[in-house]
């Protein structure tokens, strides 16, 4: 089975990953809801995953995909911890608006 990379240049994937990554960044900047921000970060990670997979296929080297696997595991762990923190904060201040979190400054 031929991979898509035989029909399109690798550059396209790189660019797509960059675009998705940038959209993720934009989301982080754009939103105040912590959950959405998490999701945008997940989006960034997925952009990276896709890039790694593309490279892996391009080079015919599996380590890239192993790395994607690790990243997924890490992402899961992060989400677990992140949501735990979030819930804890929500329990304390009843909001997930990150702009409310500005007691520490200066």
């Amino acid at each position: 089975m031929n991979s898509i990379l035989q029909y399109i240049p690798l550059n396209y994937y790189v660019a797509l990953a960059a675009i998705l990554f940038a959209i993720g960044v934009m989301g982080v900047l754009f939103r105040r809801n912590a959950i959405i921000i998490f999701m945008c970060i997940e989006l960034m990670l997925n952009a990276v995953n896709m890039l790694l997979t593309a490279f892996s296929t391009f080079h015919g080297d599996e380590s890239g995909q192993v790395m994607v696997f690790f990243i997924m595991a890490v992402a899961a762990a992060e989400v677990a911890v992140g949501l735990a923190i979030l819930v804890m904060i929500y329990n304390n201040i009843r909001t997930v608006d990150i702009d409310e979190l500005n007691k520490l400054k200066g």
Binding site: L29, I98, K105
Partner: peptide
């Protein structure tokens, strides 16, 4: 300068970007 340190994550991330 310390006024830059607003305490808002958004601002920090903005600065990072």
């Amino acid at each position: 300068l310390r006024k830059l340190q607003t305490g808002h994550i958004g601002a920090y991330i903005f600065a990072m970007v």
